[in-house]
């Protein structure tokens, strides 16, 4: 979502041959503000700082190299963005001030759009969560945890259930969802925003 108009932007190597904007350009344009992805110097500070780095298919640095090399399918099918815990440690440590966490979000949403999201539990968790938000205007922890655990961790249901009972006993979870007054207004806003996003 750069404010720069498309024709004024410099043509990059590998881009001139096709009419489609490069994958790199697409990611830049669809990440809010200036993602600074192009500034990555492949130093690896991101991967070295990442708390879930050991469980990622590729370090963030490698994913950025893929994006820049136009390896769209490889980048979108990596589990890396889904193991990002949104701690922003890489973002504040990056010597080039690349908005790493924001780019991970862009990659996740793009992977879902293209049907390439690899970590089903993470994708479905996000989708279930936002489903409740769109239905009620607020998150609904009990419904979310129940639906998610039945689908993704049936073997862990006993433990999850005992945690849920503990939450109930301590008055830390509700049996019924809280619904905002003007959920209709919220939906109109969200549907319009989705429409605008689809036009892009």
């Amino acid at each position: 979502m750069n404010t720069t108009a498309e024709p004024a932007a410099p043509v990059r190597e590998g881009e001139a041959a096709t009419a489609e904007p490069s994958f790199l350009r697409w990611i830049e344009n669809n990440t809010p503000g200036d993602s600074r992805l192009i500034m990555c110097i492949q130093c690896g500070t991101c991967g070295g700082s990442c708390p879930s780095g050991p469980d990622m298919d590729h370090s963030p640095r490698q994913v950025f190299a893929m994006v820049r090399a136009g390896l769209k399918d490889e980048a979108l099918s990596s589990n890396t963005p889904w193991y990002c815990v949104s701690c922003y440690l890489c973002t504040v440590r990056c010597p080039q001030e690349v908005h790493i966490t924001d780019i991970m979000y862009t990659l996740k949403s793009k992977a879902i759009e293209e049907g390439m999201a690899q970590v089903d539990a993470a994708k479905v968790w996000s989708e279930t969560f936002i489903g409740y938000v769109e239905e009620y205007g607020r998150s609904f922890e009990l419904g979310l945890a129940t639906r998610h655990n039945i689908r993704h961790r049936p073997m862990g249901m006993t433990r999850a259930a005992s945690l849920g009972v503990g939450m109930l006993a301590k008055g830390r979870i509700d049996l019924t969802p809280q619904v905002i007054e003007d959920v209709g207004q919220l939906r109109l806003i969200l549907w319009k925003a989705k429409e605008l996003e689809a036009e892009q």
Binding site: K108, S109, I112, V133, G137, K192
Partner: peptide, 25 residues
């Protein structure tokens, strides 16, 4: 009054601009 969920880390994992519209409200 009548605030809605901020989307946590989930809404923007699925949608980009709509995640900001959610917070924008």
């Amino acid at each position: 009054e009548d605030w809605n969920c901020c989307g946590a880390t989930e809404y923007m994992s699925v949608y980009r601009a709509p995640a900001h519209a959610l917070v924008g409200r």
